[in-house]
Design a protein around this nucleic acid. Structure first.
Lengths: 194, 194
DNA sequence: CAAAAACATTGAACTAGTTCAATAACTGTG
DNA sequence: CACAGTTATTGAACTAGTTCAATGTTTTTG
């Protein structure tokens, strides 16, 4: 079942034969992780790339003033890693924490390199995935500039209704870059308009 | 000379033999572009990926309210394209305009695909480049949340002193996501502190 | 080289979003 | 099931950044 999700994930980007997928998927091993536990802590080296098959994670960083900043939330079918830390085996800026009991498929650094060697097609797969992620990050950056907090909140809950459901105001606020009190006020404003 | 820059650009990410570089570079053709001319206009399909060998570009979008939003500035050694539009041959959200007389090396869509086929190693190259870009975008997103406008301005001129020099307040403002009047006020504040 | 156009500076009035503090409502756990 | 801890709501005072308008400065172009 978790591997079925992985297959479906690939199918969105590229065509793999059954035997190719066989090879690919054998590099990944499952891991369960309990609510509130960490897959990665800021400062540690990120040893994995992870594909979420169940549950929900927050990928975030704490800045010098102690403010929490959520880069993204990852549910089923999302990838989680600190790419920079993983690629360079340097201390991570990001923390990755399970918001509920979750399951991931992990691949470690050495195996990822081996996989690239054995299956050059995986380069293309990750090239395509990186580029898609890049596009969505570019759009988010632009939205952050030209949308008000209200608009960004509405866009978020409309775009990710299932994720939004699972989150507290505090977490949504940390993602949108606004105070949680203001999220409360936005909600009130919206409710009164209906 | 322009091709020397392209070689140096690759060397930062991956090792190419001379003959590999030969093959690679032959897919690119030079183009000069005059100040204020457009390499790409919002709404058109982006037919190229471009490597800047001289001059300066702004890559931006105009939102529904008519506000200009600069995604990034590209000088020598930077790449310019609307990846989304280029990949899917769909109308571009981005415009790319020369801020001064400039030169680029371009590769078009068909040749890019041919290049990927002929040289799988190019997949790795662009996978690596995309991931590095992704990391810097993630960091910028976080900075936008936890830095004040003053800090973001200072960070920008410190990180890209050569680019900043070439830009007007208006352009820097459109990049930082603040009003150009406020850029003026930030400058004044900084000057008085010295 | 003069006129026009674009850009920069400044101040005053404003507003979106913050901060703080107090209270209320949940949620998890012994 | 009670209570400790976390989360949500609300209002009042505040502030970072905007908007508008007026003036000055630089750049472009006929």
């Amino acid at each position: 079942m978790p591997y079925t999700l992985l297959k479906e994930n690939i199918d969105k980007h590229i065509q793999f034969s059954d035997s190719e997928f066989e090879t690919y998927s054998h590099f990944f091993y499952p891991k369960t992780i309990s609510k509130k536990d960490f897959l990665l802590r800021q400062g540690d080296v990120c040893r994995f790339e992870g594909f979420v098959t169940k549950g929900c994670f927050r990928v975030y960083t704490i800045d010098n003033d102690g403010n929490e900043n959520v880069l993204y939330f990852a549910v089923e079918d999302w990838w989680v890693t600190d790419i920079d830390s993983f690629t360079n085996q340097a201390p991570a800026l990001l923390s990755i924490q399970a918001l509920e009991d979750s399951e991931v498929l992990l691949i470690n650094k050495k195996d990822k390199e081996l996989l690239y060697q054995q299956m050059p097609k995986v380069e293309k797969l990750f090239r395509i995935m990186s580029q898609k992620t890049l596009v969505s990050l570019q759009r988010r950056l632009i939205r952050n500039h030209c949308y008000t907090a209200d608009e960004r909140y509405l866009h978020f809950i409309k775009t990710y209704p299932k994720i939004a459901q699972k989150l507290t105001n505090l977490q949504i606020a940390a993602y949108l870059g606004i105070s949680h009190e203001f999220v409360s006020k936005i909600r009130k404003k919206i409710a009164s308009k209906k």
